[in-house]
Design a protein around this nucleic acid. Structure first.
Lengths: 213, 213
DNA sequence: TTCACAATACCCATTTATGTTGATTTTTCA
DNA sequence: TGAAAAATCAACATAAATGGGTATTGTGAA
């Protein structure tokens, strides 16, 4: 039997090296590529034949959620396992909704990652205990996102949340984007509803988690 | 000659494994321990004889800056090299002011980390190009922190910035800490001055960078 | 014992953000 | 082409944050 060919998508080089080092002991797992951003991963998939991608949620340029969506639409025959330090329901759900085959939280028990990969390659789904807890605990809080009516952010909303996180005021954002301040307010309002947060703090945290700033 | 004994302080297990894997090729560098938080590092230093600590700035429980300060005061004879993805002047400066022997930005060229360690062990100081740029470029912006009058945050200020980042309002913070809303406002005002930021966004970013939330 | 600083608290004025509601135009895509 | 989604704008009211200043208390170091 041939080993499972894995691409690691993680900004941190050392993480990729660490994973390779771990899998050196596992005969059936072989790391064949490393991407530092979502975009790099999409390219790499077309160049290197791989069975599975280990995808960090928090990536610059194109984050894990967007990358997952793209892979699900355009790339047949590759499994994707989310792999992140983030445990918030928001991200676990998003990755699963976008088609991830599992969610492994970083820094888990030593053999967990390998086990998760094998489960997924067998056609199963793997969720780390923490991720499972997060999904369970999060239902009452983020139920507005669940039940199929997940709301993604639009392009404009992303531009705005990014500028908010960069300490721009509404007037400045409007100026920067060439729209009225009133429109900016509307977008912010929608953002806060969609993300279920109360103010700037929640927006900034979201933008930072997804590495939009 | 005996090899340099190194302790890695980083939340991410895989990073530590990655570093060990890299240094497997370097005969003079040997990783002898791994700490996941600042507190763990301080303990480990008393238990394991080490020549140098590789210290991530962004650590939970006790972050790199506070850990650095503590080591500088209480631990003789151990070199410390800061090692982080963060390149902001705020952190580079803070680490150097607190006594770090160098600052290496993660994801640099392959041999950089080893070179930096050797420089430091020779009694020198090593700064990554990015860190050096950041220091140079940051002077006009954060000069109020420079020239010896670096201002650290007080305990109370840290509690408050943390709650701000957790989306608490001033009234709620006051209630949570048992102080008046007015006092909270004063602390926030002082925080923004010290950190040279304009609003909630800047405070949240700072708290997240230092892993206080 | 001074001196510095942390922590507390309040005043005022101004700006900015949030909440509510409703609307129009443009874009996208089935 | 027609429906749905996205992007645009604004009036109103309320809540909250920002900026400036001042002042008291306690604590610990020089």
């Amino acid at each position: 039997m041939c080993p499972t060919r894995i691409i690691v998508a993680d900004t941190n080089d050392l993480v990729a090296i660490g994973i390779s080092a771990r899998f050196a002991e596992e005969a059936d797992l072989h790391v064949v590529g490393h991407a530092r951003t979502g975009k790099e991963l999409l390219e790499l998939i077309t160049q290197v034949k791989a069975d599975l991608a280990l995808l960090e949620v928090s990536l610059p340029e194109m984050d894990g959620i967007d990358t997952m969506r793209h892979i699900h639409k355009h790339c047949e025959g590759i499994k994707v396992l989310a792999h992140s330090l983030l445990t918030e329901i928001e991200y676990v759900n998003s990755m699963l909704i976008e088609g991830a085959d599992g969610y492994v939280v970083k820094n888990g028990p030593k053999g967990e990652l390998a086990e998760a990969i094998r489960t997924v390659m067998d056609g199963g789904t793997y969720l780390s205990p923490t991720a499972r807890e997060s999904v369970a605990a999060g239902y009452q809080f983020t139920n507005k996102h669940m039940g199929g009516e997940y709301v993604g952010l639009t392009t404009r909303e992303r531009e705005i949340i990014r500028l908010v996180a960069l300490q721009y005021g509404n007037a400045e954002i409007g100026e920067a984007l060439g729209i009225s301040e009133g429109t900016v307010k509307t977008h912010r309002k929608n953002l806060m509803h969609k993300l279920n947060v109360r103010g700037v703090a929640g927006l900034v945290k979201y933008a930072m988690d997804r590495r939009w700033i």
